[in-house]
Design a binder for these strands. Structure first.
Lengths: 159, 159
DNA sequence: CGCGATTTAGTTGTGCACAACTGAATTGTG
DNA sequence: CACAATTCAGTTGTGCACAACTAAATCGCG
């Protein structure tokens, strides 16, 4: 082993930090572009899911976005206050709350169509490059999710 | 143009969302592993910078991490409350605050040496793969930062 | 049927990110 | 020297992420 543990602390910083920085940089570009629509980045993600899949209960929304009710409940209240969605308790299962697009929420989609083009321009990457990066990130995410599971649960056999 | 704007909304979701998800997944793994050290992930990043560069003013710390005082001030207070750093107003320039590692903060480094190995194991990627990903992410970040600048400033010529 | 376990949203509390602002110290320019 | 502009840390307010919890509705087993 030629690299002392000391060097690993520096390498480590670069990997996690690059991802952290890239995520925040993306967030910053979206912030600027979405300001016109009156949406934050996570709110935009919620709207994308609703535009694609139609009305959904909070649970299903959370599964698409990997977010729990602790994050979604206040976020959805803000979207409701903005007049983009309604939240209605399901009559079939009163535990569940259906998130429905209002006419205004549906109409916002037209204005959102320009967003991807502007984001793509900001990245300066071609489509294939982006697609490849996305694939790698998704692989990484599923590895990390699995690892978090085993770290959280059976630490015992960790060596 | 064979892809209608409608499809771009879906593709767009995949790119930004993958990065968002990967960042949060990394955060989750760090959360579990850093719990032993009593650090959050951003606090760990601050400690890495201090371990590598020694005592620094808040400003310089912020430049390394791309964080402003609004984020760092409360974070550093928590690190100080945990006994890992001290904050001392510079005598040469009283606007500036020097962040200094305490003995305890310096000693924590020994316990942190195991972190990178456990993270690397969690990613399941080899070093070259990680390095390549890091390079791509850094390129993406600098593109995005530059784009955020021009979006924020002279929108006029945006087409 | 009855009752414990599970599911579903929501709430609370902590911490981070960032915009906008304050106030004090310093710098630069006339 | 004086004073406007800048720099630096901190504060305030908003929003997201997540852990831990509550409360209500539903499910399922005996």
């Amino acid at each position: 082993m030629t690299t002392p543990a000391t060097d690993w602390l520096r390498l480590d910083q670069q990997i996690c930090f690059s991802l952290h920085a890239a995520s925040r940089a993306f967030n910053g570009v979206y912030r600027v572009i979405l300001k016109d629509l009156g949406l934050t980045y996570p709110q935009y993600l919620v709207m994308l899911v609703l535009w694609e899949h139609g009305d959904l209960p909070v649970k299903a929304l959370g599964e698409h976005l990997r977010l729990d009710s602790g994050t979604l409940s206040p976020l959805l209240k803000r979207l409701e206050a903005a007049g983009l969605v309604r939240r209605e308790r399901s009559t079939r299962d009163e535990r569940s709350v259906e998130v429905r697009l209002t006419d205004e929420g549906t109409a916002l989609r037209e204005h959102a169509l320009q967003v991807p083009r502007r984001i793509a321009a900001a990245t300066g990457c071609d489509v294939d490059e982006i697609r490849d990066l996305r694939t790698r990130l998704d692989q990484l995410t599923s590895m990390l999710d699995a690892a978090a599971q085993s770290e959280a649960a059976g630490d015992a056999g960790r060596q």
